[in-house]
Amino acid sequence: MPFRPPSLRGVTPQGRGRYPGYDVLDELKRQDDVTTGMILARLSPNDQLVFFTAAEQAVATPLVDQILGQDGEPKVPVLPMIDARLASGETDGYVYEGMPDDAEAWRRSLAALDADARERFGRGFGELDWADQGDLVAAVQQTEGAWHDLPASRVWSLWTRYACAEFYAHPWAWNEIGFGGPAYPRGYKSTGIDKRENWEVADAAPTDPVTAGQRIEQARAEHERNTRVRPGRQGPPEGNDPPVQGQDS
Protein backbone atom coordinates (compact mmCIF):
# COMPACT_ATOMS: atom_id res chain seq x y z
CA MET A 1 0.00 0.00 0.00
CA PRO A 2 1.73 3.17 -1.15
CA PHE A 3 -0.01 5.80 0.99
CA ARG A 4 -3.24 6.08 2.91
CA PRO A 5 -4.11 8.97 5.24
CA PRO A 6 -5.03 8.03 8.81
CA SER A 7 -8.66 9.00 8.29
CA LEU A 8 -9.00 6.27 5.67
CA ARG A 9 -7.66 3.47 7.86
CA GLY A 10 -9.99 0.78 9.12
CA VAL A 11 -13.08 2.43 7.66
CA THR A 12 -16.38 0.55 7.92
CA PRO A 13 -19.74 1.62 6.47
CA GLN A 14 -21.51 3.87 9.00
CA GLY A 15 -18.72 3.03 11.45
CA ARG A 16 -20.35 -0.33 12.21
CA GLY A 17 -18.36 -3.50 12.63
CA ARG A 18 -17.05 -6.12 15.04
CA TYR A 19 -13.37 -6.25 14.13
CA PRO A 20 -11.77 -3.18 15.72
CA GLY A 21 -8.69 -1.92 13.91
CA TYR A 22 -9.00 -4.49 11.13
CA ASP A 23 -8.23 -3.10 7.68
CA VAL A 24 -8.15 -5.48 4.73
CA LEU A 25 -6.26 -2.85 2.75
CA ASP A 26 -3.23 -3.27 5.03
CA GLU A 27 -2.64 -6.62 3.38
CA LEU A 28 -2.69 -5.38 -0.22
CA LYS A 29 1.08 -5.17 -0.14
CA ARG A 30 1.07 -8.96 -0.28
CA GLN A 31 -1.37 -9.25 -3.21
CA ASP A 32 -0.98 -9.26 -6.97
CA ASP A 33 -1.13 -6.01 -8.94
CA VAL A 34 -4.17 -6.83 -11.05
CA THR A 35 -6.38 -7.60 -8.06
CA THR A 36 -4.98 -4.72 -6.03
CA GLY A 37 -5.73 -2.21 -8.78
CA MET A 38 -9.26 -3.48 -9.15
CA ILE A 39 -9.98 -3.22 -5.43
CA LEU A 40 -8.42 0.20 -4.95
CA ALA A 41 -10.50 1.53 -7.86
CA ARG A 42 -13.63 0.78 -5.83
CA LEU A 43 -12.62 3.39 -3.24
CA SER A 44 -13.25 6.16 -5.72
CA PRO A 45 -15.65 5.18 -8.49
CA ASN A 46 -16.62 7.60 -11.23
CA ASP A 47 -19.66 9.37 -9.83
CA GLN A 48 -20.67 10.95 -13.15
CA LEU A 49 -23.69 8.79 -13.82
CA VAL A 50 -24.43 7.85 -17.39
CA PHE A 51 -27.18 5.23 -17.13
CA PHE A 52 -29.62 6.66 -14.60
CA THR A 53 -31.44 9.88 -15.44
CA ALA A 54 -31.61 12.52 -12.71
CA ALA A 55 -35.20 11.46 -11.99
CA GLU A 56 -34.14 7.81 -11.67
CA GLN A 57 -31.14 8.75 -9.53
CA ALA A 58 -33.52 10.47 -7.09
CA VAL A 59 -35.27 7.13 -6.55
CA ALA A 60 -32.34 4.75 -6.88
CA THR A 61 -30.03 6.48 -4.39
CA PRO A 62 -32.34 6.15 -1.36
CA LEU A 63 -33.63 2.75 -2.55
CA VAL A 64 -30.14 1.27 -2.54
CA ASP A 65 -29.39 2.91 0.83
CA GLN A 66 -32.55 1.33 2.25
CA ILE A 67 -31.75 -2.16 0.97
CA LEU A 68 -28.24 -1.97 2.41
CA GLY A 69 -29.16 -0.10 5.59
CA GLN A 70 -26.75 2.74 4.73
CA ASP A 71 -28.35 5.39 6.92
CA GLY A 72 -25.27 7.55 7.49
CA GLU A 73 -21.69 8.33 6.57
CA PRO A 74 -19.30 6.92 5.61
CA LYS A 75 -21.18 5.20 2.81
CA VAL A 76 -19.98 2.68 0.29
CA PRO A 77 -20.62 4.41 -3.06
CA VAL A 78 -22.88 1.71 -4.45
CA LEU A 79 -25.00 3.63 -6.96
CA PRO A 80 -22.13 4.76 -9.25
CA MET A 81 -21.02 1.12 -9.48
CA ILE A 82 -24.54 -0.08 -10.34
CA ASP A 83 -24.75 2.72 -12.91
CA ALA A 84 -21.46 1.65 -14.50
CA ARG A 85 -22.57 -1.96 -14.58
CA LEU A 86 -25.89 -1.16 -16.26
CA ALA A 87 -24.22 1.24 -18.69
CA SER A 88 -21.80 -1.49 -19.78
CA GLY A 89 -24.60 -4.05 -20.18
CA GLU A 90 -22.97 -6.53 -17.80
CA THR A 91 -25.69 -9.02 -16.89
CA ASP A 92 -25.73 -12.27 -14.95
CA GLY A 93 -26.17 -14.25 -18.18
CA TYR A 94 -29.92 -14.85 -18.21
CA VAL A 95 -33.25 -13.12 -18.38
CA TYR A 96 -36.57 -14.62 -17.26
CA GLU A 97 -39.00 -15.17 -20.11
CA GLY A 98 -41.47 -12.31 -20.09
CA MET A 99 -39.18 -10.04 -18.02
CA PRO A 100 -37.46 -7.08 -19.66
CA ASP A 101 -33.65 -7.10 -19.61
CA ASP A 102 -31.94 -5.85 -16.44
CA ALA A 103 -31.51 -2.27 -17.63
CA GLU A 104 -35.15 -1.91 -18.63
CA ALA A 105 -36.29 -3.66 -15.43
CA TRP A 106 -34.33 -1.13 -13.36
CA ARG A 107 -35.90 1.82 -15.17
CA ARG A 108 -39.42 0.46 -14.93
CA SER A 109 -39.15 -0.57 -11.29
CA LEU A 110 -37.74 2.81 -10.26
CA ALA A 111 -40.59 4.57 -12.05
CA ALA A 112 -43.05 2.24 -10.32
CA LEU A 113 -41.57 2.94 -6.89
CA ASP A 114 -41.78 6.67 -7.53
CA ALA A 115 -45.40 6.26 -8.61
CA ASP A 116 -46.13 4.43 -5.32
CA ALA A 117 -44.60 7.34 -3.41
CA ARG A 118 -46.67 9.94 -5.25
CA GLU A 119 -49.83 7.97 -4.83
CA ARG A 120 -49.40 7.40 -1.12
CA PHE A 121 -47.54 10.52 0.02
CA GLY A 122 -48.09 12.98 -2.84
CA ARG A 123 -44.34 13.42 -3.27
CA GLY A 124 -41.51 11.73 -5.13
CA PHE A 125 -39.68 8.81 -3.44
CA GLY A 126 -36.50 10.87 -3.12
CA GLU A 127 -38.32 13.60 -1.20
CA LEU A 128 -39.65 11.29 1.51
CA ASP A 129 -38.02 10.80 4.88
CA TRP A 130 -36.13 7.60 5.70
CA ALA A 131 -39.06 5.91 7.45
CA ASP A 132 -41.57 6.57 4.68
CA GLN A 133 -39.10 5.30 2.09
CA GLY A 134 -38.59 2.16 4.17
CA ASP A 135 -42.32 1.68 4.31
CA LEU A 136 -42.62 1.65 0.53
CA VAL A 137 -39.59 -0.62 0.04
CA ALA A 138 -40.97 -3.07 2.59
CA ALA A 139 -44.29 -3.08 0.75
CA VAL A 140 -42.59 -4.19 -2.46
CA GLN A 141 -40.67 -6.89 -0.61
CA GLN A 142 -43.91 -8.22 0.86
CA THR A 143 -45.89 -8.13 -2.37
CA GLU A 144 -46.86 -11.53 -3.74
CA GLY A 145 -47.37 -11.77 -7.48
CA ALA A 146 -47.44 -8.71 -9.71
CA TRP A 147 -46.33 -5.24 -8.64
CA HIS A 148 -47.32 -2.68 -11.25
CA ASP A 149 -46.58 -4.69 -14.42
CA LEU A 150 -43.61 -6.65 -13.03
CA PRO A 151 -43.37 -9.78 -10.84
CA ALA A 152 -42.51 -8.39 -7.38
CA SER A 153 -40.19 -11.23 -6.40
CA ARG A 154 -38.10 -10.81 -9.56
CA VAL A 155 -37.81 -7.06 -8.96
CA TRP A 156 -36.76 -7.68 -5.38
CA SER A 157 -34.16 -10.19 -6.51
CA LEU A 158 -32.85 -7.72 -9.12
CA TRP A 159 -32.50 -4.88 -6.60
CA THR A 160 -30.86 -6.97 -3.88
CA ARG A 161 -28.51 -8.83 -6.27
CA TYR A 162 -27.17 -5.62 -7.79
CA ALA A 163 -26.92 -3.77 -4.47
CA CYS A 164 -25.24 -6.60 -2.53
CA ALA A 165 -22.81 -7.41 -5.35
CA GLU A 166 -21.36 -3.90 -5.19
CA PHE A 167 -21.59 -3.40 -1.43
CA TYR A 168 -19.93 -6.69 -0.46
CA ALA A 169 -17.23 -6.12 -3.09
CA HIS A 170 -16.06 -3.03 -1.22
CA PRO A 171 -13.11 -3.24 1.20
CA TRP A 172 -14.99 -1.18 3.83
CA ALA A 173 -17.71 -3.84 3.92
CA TRP A 174 -14.98 -6.49 4.30
CA ASN A 175 -13.63 -4.57 7.29
CA GLU A 176 -17.11 -4.59 8.77
CA ILE A 177 -17.58 -8.37 8.49
CA GLY A 178 -13.99 -9.47 9.05
CA PHE A 179 -13.52 -11.03 5.61
CA GLY A 180 -9.91 -11.64 4.55
CA GLY A 181 -10.23 -10.16 1.06
CA PRO A 182 -7.88 -11.08 -1.78
CA ALA A 183 -5.33 -13.80 -1.09
CA TYR A 184 -2.83 -14.23 -3.90
CA PRO A 185 0.04 -14.90 -3.73
CA ARG A 186 -0.11 -14.71 0.07
CA GLY A 187 -2.70 -17.43 0.75
CA TYR A 188 -3.59 -18.76 4.21
CA LYS A 189 -1.62 -20.89 6.60
CA SER A 190 -3.94 -21.06 9.60
CA THR A 191 -7.14 -22.74 8.48
CA GLY A 192 -9.70 -24.34 10.77
CA ILE A 193 -12.15 -23.44 13.48
CA ASP A 194 -11.05 -20.45 15.56
CA LYS A 195 -7.74 -20.28 13.69
CA ARG A 196 -6.44 -16.89 12.65
CA GLU A 197 -3.55 -15.52 10.63
CA ASN A 198 -1.38 -13.11 12.57
CA TRP A 199 -2.97 -10.20 10.68
CA GLU A 200 -6.57 -11.30 11.21
CA VAL A 201 -8.50 -9.71 14.06
CA ALA A 202 -10.77 -11.66 16.40
CA ASP A 203 -14.49 -10.95 16.45
CA ALA A 204 -14.89 -8.47 19.29
CA ALA A 205 -18.49 -9.49 19.92
CA PRO A 206 -18.78 -13.21 19.20
CA THR A 207 -21.25 -13.80 22.02
CA ASP A 208 -20.99 -11.37 24.92
CA PRO A 209 -22.51 -9.14 26.07
CA VAL A 210 -25.36 -10.10 23.73
CA THR A 211 -25.87 -13.32 21.83
CA ALA A 212 -26.00 -13.34 18.07
CA GLY A 213 -29.75 -13.88 18.21
CA GLN A 214 -30.18 -10.85 20.43
CA ARG A 215 -28.04 -8.76 18.13
CA ILE A 216 -30.19 -9.71 15.19
CA GLU A 217 -33.34 -8.99 17.20
CA GLN A 218 -31.92 -5.57 18.04
CA ALA A 219 -31.20 -4.92 14.39
CA ARG A 220 -34.70 -6.06 13.56
CA ALA A 221 -36.27 -3.74 16.11
CA GLU A 222 -34.18 -0.84 14.90
CA HIS A 223 -35.04 -1.68 11.30
CA GLU A 224 -38.71 -1.79 12.24
CA ARG A 225 -38.53 1.52 14.03
CA ASN A 226 -36.88 3.06 11.01
CA THR A 227 -39.18 1.59 8.44
CA ARG A 228 -42.32 1.16 10.55
CA VAL A 229 -42.99 -2.17 8.87
CA ARG A 230 -41.95 -5.54 10.09
CA PRO A 231 -39.15 -6.74 7.79
CA GLY A 232 -39.03 -10.21 6.34
CA ARG A 233 -41.82 -12.14 4.69
CA GLN A 234 -42.39 -14.05 7.87
CA GLY A 235 -41.18 -12.24 10.93
CA PRO A 236 -40.34 -14.33 13.98
CA PRO A 237 -42.17 -13.95 17.27
CA GLU A 238 -40.70 -11.68 19.94
CA GLY A 239 -37.71 -12.89 21.84
CA ASN A 240 -34.69 -14.84 20.89
CA ASP A 241 -36.18 -17.45 18.59
CA PRO A 242 -34.38 -18.13 15.35
CA PRO A 243 -36.09 -16.66 12.29
CA VAL A 244 -38.58 -18.86 10.50
CA GLN A 245 -37.17 -20.66 7.49
CA GLY A 246 -37.68 -18.68 4.34
CA GLN A 247 -37.97 -20.12 0.87
CA ASP A 248 -36.19 -18.82 -2.17
CA SER A 249 -38.70 -17.08 -4.33
Binding site: E176, G232, D248
Partner: peptide, 12 residues
Amino acid sequence: TAQGHWGAVLRE
Protein backbone atom coordinates in the same frame (compact mmCIF):
# COMPACT_ATOMS: atom_id res chain seq x y z
CA THR B 1 -31.61 -11.93 1.32
CA ALA B 2 -33.33 -15.19 0.34
CA GLN B 3 -34.75 -15.28 3.89
CA GLY B 4 -36.41 -11.94 3.18
CA HIS B 5 -33.85 -9.91 5.16
CA TRP B 6 -32.73 -6.47 4.06
CA GLY B 7 -31.55 -3.18 5.51
CA ALA B 8 -30.23 -3.28 9.08
CA VAL B 9 -31.08 -6.98 9.49
CA LEU B 10 -29.16 -7.94 6.35
CA ARG B 11 -26.16 -6.03 7.64
CA GLU B 12 -26.37 -7.70 11.07
